[in-house]
Simulated assay, not measured.
Amino acid sequence: MSARARLRRSAAVAFVSAITAGSALLLTACDPSADAADAKSGTAAPTRSTSPSAVGSASPSSSAGASATPSASASTTPTGSAPAPAATPSTTPTKAALNLTKGTGLTISNGTRYVVMDGKVVDFGTVVRDLTWSPDGKHAAFVDGNGNLQTSDPDGSHKVLIAKAPSGQTWSHPTWQVTVPDSIDPGRNNLLLTADDHGTLRLLTVPAHAGATPAALRLITSDMDGGPGVPQTGNLWPNATGSHGSAVYANKNDGQVYIRDEYTRLDGAAVTKGSQPAADDEGDIVFVRSVDGHSHIFERSVDSHQERDLTPRASADYTEPVVSHDGTTVAFRGPDGIYTVPAKGGTPQKVSDTVGLPAFRG
Rank of each mutant, 00 (worst) to 15 (best):
residue 160 V to H: 02
residue 127 V to G: 00
residue 110 N to A: 05
residue 214 P to C: 11
residue 240 A to N: 10
residue 202 R to T: 15
residue 147 G to M: 04
residue 220 I to K: 14
residue 248 V to N: 08
residue 249 Y to P: 06
residue 140 A to N: 11
residue 213 T to Y: 02
residue 231 P to S: 10
residue 111 G to H: 01
residue 227 G to N: 14
residue 138 K to F: 03
residue 152 S to L: 03
residue 150 Q to Y: 10
residue 214 P to F: 12
residue 123 D to Q: 03
residue 235 N to F: 10
residue 195 A to N: 06
residue 124 F to H: 03
residue 197 D to W: 04
residue 214 P to H: 11
residue 130 D to P: 00
residue 143 V to T: 05
residue 204 L to H: 07
residue 138 K to E: 10
residue 167 S to C: 03
residue 159 K to L: 00
residue 160 V to W: 01
residue 185 D to K: 08
residue 157 S to P: 06
residue 134 S to P: 07
residue 139 H to K: 07
residue 205 T to N: 14
residue 122 V to N: 04
residue 151 T to H: 05
residue 221 T to Y: 09
residue 130 D to A: 05
residue 191 L to I: 15
residue 153 D to F: 03
residue 208 A to N: 15
residue 114 Y to S: 01
residue 138 K to T: 05
residue 164 K to E: 08
residue 149 L to A: 02
residue 199 G to A: 08
residue 124 F to D: 00
residue 189 N to S: 15
residue 197 D to F: 03
residue 128 V to D: 00
residue 166 P to M: 02
residue 249 Y to I: 08
residue 215 A to S: 15
residue 233 T to W: 12
residue 227 G to A: 13
residue 141 A to D: 05
residue 161 L to Y: 00
residue 221 T to S: 14
residue 151 T to N: 09
residue 229 G to P: 10
residue 229 G to N: 13
residue 244 H to E: 08
residue 205 T to D: 13
residue 133 W to D: 00
residue 161 L to W: 00
residue 243 S to G: 15
residue 117 M to W: 03
residue 218 R to Y: 13
residue 238 P to A: 07
residue 126 T to Q: 10
residue 245 G to E: 12
residue 220 I to T: 13
residue 229 G to Y: 07
residue 220 I to Q: 10
residue 145 G to I: 00
residue 120 K to T: 04
residue 246 S to Q: 14
residue 197 D to G: 04
residue 170 T to D: 13
residue 140 A to H: 08
residue 172 S to V: 05
residue 114 Y to W: 05
residue 143 V to C: 02
residue 179 T to H: 11
residue 199 G to Y: 06
residue 183 S to L: 11
residue 189 N to C: 14
residue 118 D to L: 00
residue 180 V to P: 08
residue 170 T to Y: 15
residue 173 H to V: 02
residue 163 A to G: 00
residue 159 K to M: 02
residue 146 N to S: 09
residue 126 T to L: 02
residue 126 T to G: 01
residue 205 T to M: 15
residue 247 A to I: 13
residue 175 T to M: 14
residue 172 S to L: 05
residue 204 L to E: 04
residue 250 A to C: 05
residue 212 A to H: 09
residue 225 D to M: 14
residue 163 A to V: 01
residue 189 N to G: 09
residue 138 K to M: 09
residue 180 V to D: 04
residue 113 R to V: 03
residue 206 V to G: 02
residue 201 L to A: 06
residue 197 D to V: 13
residue 247 A to G: 05
residue 153 D to W: 03
residue 236 L to D: 07
residue 228 P to E: 11
residue 182 D to N: 14
residue 118 D to N: 02
residue 115 V to I: 11
residue 243 S to L: 07
residue 211 G to H: 06
residue 185 D to Q: 13
residue 123 D to E: 03
residue 127 V to Q: 06
residue 247 A to E: 09
residue 200 T to F: 10
residue 143 V to L: 14
residue 245 G to P: 10
residue 251 N to Q: 08
residue 137 G to W: 12
residue 125 G to I: 07
residue 131 L to E: 00
residue 112 T to N: 05
residue 212 A to Y: 05
residue 240 A to P: 13
residue 200 T to Y: 12
residue 145 G to D: 00
residue 147 G to V: 03
residue 181 P to M: 06
residue 138 K to V: 01
residue 212 A to N: 13
residue 125 G to Q: 09
residue 243 S to R: 06
residue 166 P to K: 06
residue 116 V to Q: 11
residue 117 M to Y: 09
residue 204 L to N: 04
